[in-house]
Amino acid sequence: MLIQEQLKEIIDNNEIVLFMKGNPDFPQCGFSGRTTQILQSYDVRFASIDVLADDAVRAGIKEYSNWPTVPQLYVRGEFVGGCDIVTQLYESGELEQILKPEA
């Protein structure tokens, strides 16, 4: 399967998915670490994909989102943003509605 199709499948099959460097327990970059901490501050489950584990995923997700950096957060198929945007949405309170629209 093409990498772009694989990425679409990951994004479609996970309500909340974070493409990051490392994993939530051992983030390999400050921006991935901060984004993880913000997500963990909410009572939500999220999938995480370590882009460092696969160069095709690392390059592919940048192309898929037309976004040059990692981390990247997807919620219900929609690209939410990278660390700066997630931080800003967290500070404004909008992130909770994005993550838990039914609450």
Partner: peptide
């Protein structure tokens, strides 16, 4: 952010490691 990234073009892929904005 995409407007800024496109102003920076390929420099985001090579010279710039981490930019927060």
């Amino acid at each position: 952010h995409k407007m800024v990234y496109s102003a920076l073009g390929d420099k985001m892929k090579s010279e710039i490691h981490a930019l927060s904005m």
